[in-house]
Nucleic acid binder design. Structure first.
Lengths: 247, 247
DNA sequence: ACGCAGGTGTGATTCAGGTCACTGCGATAC
DNA sequence: GTATCGCAGTGACCTGAATCACACCTGCGT
């Protein structure tokens, strides 16, 4: 780990194929991804070796629901959204993934078709790991299997929470919930990433207008304040109460 | 396997502690559970050894949301429901588990508190595996880790599908969806397990009355027929169309 | 500076579906 | 038998939120 960061300061001079320099940089990056965090330098490099880097322009569909899927993707830069798309064009956003996040594990694990679309919301660079290569590596590195279980557990808890909130909460309640979920833990808690009302609406199954009204209401009550699309949570307790089923 | 079933016909006569007979029966049972299906006889027995059997009367709360969780449960007989409960008593049913199903993996994996209540809907007998014991066994048996990944993948796909249907479908659409999801694959497809409208309603986040009306509508259109609470799917294609977003 | 696009605030209208309030019915219990 | 209990059907009413239709920002590119 410390060796790696040194390497970037003192680049190898001779006989080092540019490929392995880039492999080092990829291995460095993988070391920051929770899925691979437990791995040692050498293992990180062997994972780095099986990656291919792909770039996608904003709006590009990276994977489509129903596709046979046989690769895992790690976001190296940019941002993508995981969405279900209805025939009439309505979208549900299941997740917004940033640097260090990954998707495509499900098809990798069970071999079934992709369960959602993934679309770049900004120009993005993704590392792609093909199933066969990945499996071979994971067999060598059982810690990755564990990290995968942790990740799927996290997502399953989150998905169940979302189901609960869709059924038990009204729209303002759900808005309060996304705000809290995307807030940094500290005080004053600010939203990690500014999102448009449209995006929030698609995350919680509501219309843009209703989200707008809920946000106005929260500002009036002084639970949040908004400056240049940056939301700051002023009264966390009040929001938490609003995001709890049954007022 | 064949030995075990023989054993039940020709019980061992001497020196066989009754415990090991019951262990054999438990191992037999575990062999039918997908999570353990890949294991050999000996491994099944070592899993059987770390189980404790518990009985729960109808209505008993087996685990509560928020509890620290450190056990995996396998349903050996009876039926349980996984539910989120709001303070005002409203319930969302995340799943109904029958013989061979299991729950509690999440807390086992990530050590976080239980994410939902599990309540016996009939007198049930559950095999309980404590975390430490289970982990030790899994380290010996990596196939189980894989089976767990498969199971979590399945559930995550299902959860995402549920989120999609909650947002994109109207109530009749969601009713059509549960009907299809619980139908036997063959023709004529019947519902695996008769459920009350109340239960369906809590599974899809709707009121009992609205489910009732949807079911009446489907019967009138001759898409399903109901005899003594047993639902038969008459027109699968029509139901599938109704369960698709955007008419 | 200008126009333009993408995002936001807000009213008016409509409607799916929740809630309430019954009735009917088939089981199991007494 | 009849009482009782849980479940199912159906009407009447009410309301949260979608939809439609604007006007208004604010940052951007030329």
């Amino acid at each position: 780990m410390s060796f790696a960061s040194t390497a970037t300061h003192v680049p190898l001079r001779f006989a080092a194929p540019s490929m392995s320099v880039s492999l080092d940089r990829i291995a460095d990056f993988l070391g920051t991804v929770p899925l691979f965090r437990e791995l040692e330098r050498a293992s990180l490099r062997s994972f780095a070796e099986i990656t291919r880097e792909h770039k996608y322009g904003k709006g590009t569909v990276i994977v489509s629901e129903g596709d046979p899927g046989d690769a895992l993707y790690v976001v190296r830069s940019g941002e993508v959204k995981v969405v279900l798309v209805a025939e009439d064009g309505r979208e549900v956003i299941l997740g917004v993934l940033g640097v260090g996040d990954h998707f495509g594990e499900l098809s990798l694990i069970d071999g079934r078709p992709r369960s959602a679309h993934v679309i770049a919301t900004a120009t993005s660079s993704l590392l792609v790991l093909r199933r066969a290569d990945f499996r071979r590596q994971v067999e060598q590195q059982p810690q990755v299997g564990w990290a995968l279980l942790m990740e799927l557990s996290r997502r399953l808890r989150q998905a169940d929470g979302t189901i609960g909130s869709l059924v038990l909460l009204d729209v303002p309640g759900r808005v309060a919930r996304v705000l809290l979920e995307n807030a940094t833990p500290g005080e004053p808690a600010t939203l990690i990433k500014p999102m448009t009302h449209q995006v929030m609406a698609q995350m919680i199954g509501a219309s843009r207008e209703t989200v707008s009204r809920a946000m106005s209401e929260f500002q009036e009550k002084n639970w949040i304040s908004v400056a240049r699309r940056q939301v700051t949570i002023v009264d966390r307790v009040a929001l938490e109460a609003r995001a709890r089923p049954a007022i």
